[in-house]
């Protein structure tokens, strides 16, 4: 007569114990990300006129009480420029991630769930988009559509959506065999309802972690495209644009280039660290 051991009750994770198990680098990254985000949001709110105020008399002033980080070659306050640029980048990245996430999820989920010819066709579509180096495609599309905010968003969506498609499809392939899916189908639930009620909640974690990794990618892509002159145009503010216009003055004052880039890198790295951590958790 075997005596089965009662399963030990898992202690309910308290907030403190959760925080203890998170690697310190992730906590640091989250703190950095939050600080940068707050700065990007607050500075433009506090003095909206400052950012693009051109004042040639104040060219290249070193950091002082007036301009916390100095000014650029047109006399604009560097700190405000960077904050506004960061905000633009983050907002655009969020938009792109939302749209491409939805699109990628749809394609991946439908392809993975329905299978057959549909899956083949959609899979090929994803391969085509995957094969092409993003920047080349992005530049080509933006040239044809004339550089603008929405053109840039569209282009970035087209380049990012495949990152969702593949992974979601893989998850859906394994979800397909779950009992509740089979039960729903026997019940006669429509495809749309199954996708919405069952597949979506069970792919939510993937969506979150992929998004967190894609946001910095999109931010970097937008900066690169703007740097090359194909993205946002003045008077819109972008970190890439800022670096591009200041790069001719490296001999005089390298501050704008260094600081703007450093802020961008910090923001991207911190968000990416959080995303990679979450991605690792679900394996």
């Amino acid at each position: 007569m075997t005596d089965t051991m009662p399963t030990p009750i898992q202690p309910h994770p308290t907030p403190r114990s959760v925080l203890r198990r998170v690697p310190p680098i992730v906590t640091v990254a989250s703190a950095v990300a939050v600080v940068l985000l707050l700065w990007a949001v607050l500075v433009p709110l506090l003095n909206p006129a400052d950012a693009t105020a051109v004042d040639p008399a104040r060219r290249f002033t070193p950091p002082g009480p007036d301009a916390l980080l100095g000014t650029d070659h047109l006399g604009r306050d560097l700190a405000s420029m960077i904050a506004v640029g960061l905000r633009t980048s983050i907002l655009m990245a969020l938009t792109v991630v939302a749209v491409s996430g939805a699109l990628g999820w749809l394609v991946g989920a439908v392809g993975g769930y329905v299978g057959g010819v549909t899956d083949n066709v959609l899979g090929r579509l994803m391969d085509v988009f995957n094969a092409f180096p993003g920047i080349i495609l992005a530049i080509a599309l933006v040239t044809v559509l004339s550089p603008s905010y929405s053109a840039l968003v569209l282009v970035l969506v087209l380049v990012t959506w495949v990152n969702y498609g593949r992974v979601i499809r893989a998850r859906v392939l394994s979800l397909r065999r779950e009992e509740y899916i089979t039960a729903s189908r026997m019940y006669g639930t429509s495809l749309g309802r199954i996708l919405g009620r069952h597949v979506l909640p069970n792919t939510g974690d993937l969506l979150l972690s992929i998004s967190l990794v894609q946001i910095p990618n999109v931010m970097l892509a937008e900066s690169t495209i703007s740097f090359l002159g194909f993205g946002l145009q003045p008077p819109q503010v972008s970190l890439g644009l800022l670096i591009s216009s200041e790069k001719d003055y490296l001999q005089t004052n390298a501050m704008p280039v260094l600081v703007a880039g450093a802020v961008l890198v910090l923001a991207c790295t911190s968000i990416a660290t959080i995303g990679l951590y979450l991605r690792g958790k679900e394996r």
Binding site: P216, S223, V257, G261, V265, T269, T273
Partner: peptide, 14 residues
């Protein structure tokens, strides 16, 4: 992780 997210145009300029 830091290195892989550095934008090339910036690292080049640096």
């Amino acid at each position: 992780a830091f290195a892989s997210s550095v934008p090339e145009f910036w690292s080049g300029l640096v």
